[in-house]
């Protein structure tokens, strides 16, 4: 059996199609579901192994990015969501999905305390939307990040700045729950713009829950999954042509989705 992914949509989420494409390319089965349909029929989550909350602009970022959508999910789906993450499943929130996941308290969920809001993902320090390519160093053992050391993928957000109190920050680091940080020349960006595009504390680009199965990430792996999507594609294509080589079809971003596929293949083999 191939694992099933549900990619949420509705109310201004807008990256559901390319996110689904990433899962399908990686070998998963998946479908896009409007949040109202999932609320109407929550048992759909019982048959899914992967839940993705993609990027977008749910409710126009009004009252804080991801806030209103998270409120809606919490009111209508909270029990089901808790059940879902308690099972051996994978959850990913990308960009707006990251903000929603953080507002839901699906991360960091210290001591399995899902639902507690401990991190805010808020206005960029530049107070301006930033669409640009950045470099990430992976700092976690999350199954999503298995075998990945660094990634070159884009960000596109107005509110991507992780803020939290000192305790939470320390605990995240100690627990290895920081998933990835923004870097400059391979080292932590140290808050320097534009390498760290939003002023995030500790250059944090994403975090996980304690199990690593719930990942929340501001950058967009699905926009950097193929070589032709990369910002240096023109240069790479020319170089390959001169050297008589073929460019690889995929780029860094696809690895996350392939990891998801592999996670369930391995699990299946174990159980078999």
């Amino acid at each position: 059996m191939t694992a099933n992914a549900i990619v949420l949509a509705g109310y201004g989420l807008n990256c559901e199609e390319e996110t689904l494409h990433a899962f399908e390319y990686a070998g998963l089965k998946g479908k896009i579901r409007h949040i109202n349909d999932v609320i109407e029929n929550p048992s759909e989550l019982d048959n899914a192994q992967v839940l993705a909350i993609p990027g977008g602009f749910s409710y126009g970022d009004d009252t804080g990015a991801g806030n209103a959508y998270a409120q809606k999910m919490k009111l209508a789906l909270w029990d089901k969501l808790q059940e879902f993450v308690a099972r051996d499943t994978l959850t990913i929130g990308i960009c707006n999905g990251c903000q929603i996941t953080a507002n839901l308290g699906l991360v960091p969920a210290f001591d399995k305390n899902y639902g507690e809001r401990l991190v805010a993902v808020t206005h960029n320090l530049t107070a301006r939307y930033q669409c640009r390519w950045i470099d990430l160093k992976v700092t976690s053992n999350s199954p999503w990040m298995d075998g990945i050391e660094s990634m070159h993928i884009p960000v596109a957000h107005g509110e991507g700045r992780f803020m939290m109190n000192e305790d939470t920050f320390t605990k995240l680091k100690e627990n290895g729950q920081v998933a990835a940080i923004y870097t400059k020349d391979g080292e932590a960006a140290g808050g320097e713009f534009p390498y760290n595009p939003n002023g995030s504390i500790g250059d944090i680009a994403g975090i996980t829950d304690e199990t690593g199965r719930v990942l929340t990430l501001m950058p967009h792996p699905e926009r950097g999954m193929f070589t032709w999507q990369r910002d240096d594609y023109m240069e790479a294509k020319d170089k390959a042509q001169r050297e008589g080589k073929n460019l690889p079809e995929t780029a860094d971003g696809i690895l996350l989705f392939q990891n998801a596929a592999r996670y369930f293949e391995v699990a299946q083999k174990k159980s078999a």
């Binding site: 807008n14 990256c15 199609e17 390319e18 494409h21 990027g55 301006r128 939307y129 930033q130 669409c131 640009r132 884009p154 596109a156 534009p194 967009h220 699905e222 926009r223 999954m225 999507q229």
Partner: peptide, 10 residues
């Protein structure tokens, strides 16, 4: 250019 999302939809 940097404040206009130019790579959404992948």
């Amino acid at each position: 250019s940097t404040q206009y999302d130019h790579n959404v939809q992948g």
